[in-house]
Amino acid sequence: MAILGSLWTGRLYGLEILHLLERNASLGLAEGTLYVILNRLKTDGLVESEWVDAGTGHPRKYYWLTPAGRQRLRGMARFWIRFAADLETLLEPALGRKELANARR
């Protein structure tokens, strides 16, 4: 979901996706794993890709969401928001409202 989410606003290549995940979601992964997951998402028809000569001496493979990928991401996001809200309800008594609000930041 995080990888699909990183592609919502446009085309990115692998390294940009990794940077975005680290910067915006504090998510890190074994870097080679990203390409395995992207390969699976492409096989499932959720992303599309093409090699582009970026003028850096070697080509970059850019990915973007297909309509099916956008639809799947919206479904995942709805599921995740509900799931997180339910968990938050469960955990609120343990932290208290103030600490919970701090933890959200």
Partner: peptide
């Protein structure tokens, strides 16, 4: 597990949260 559906265990596969 090959299917990229929305179940919680597959939302962020093989990803760890960085400090």
């Amino acid at each position: 597990p090959h299917e990229s559906d929305g179940s919680p265990s597959r939302l962020v596969p093989s990803v760890s949260r960085t400090a």
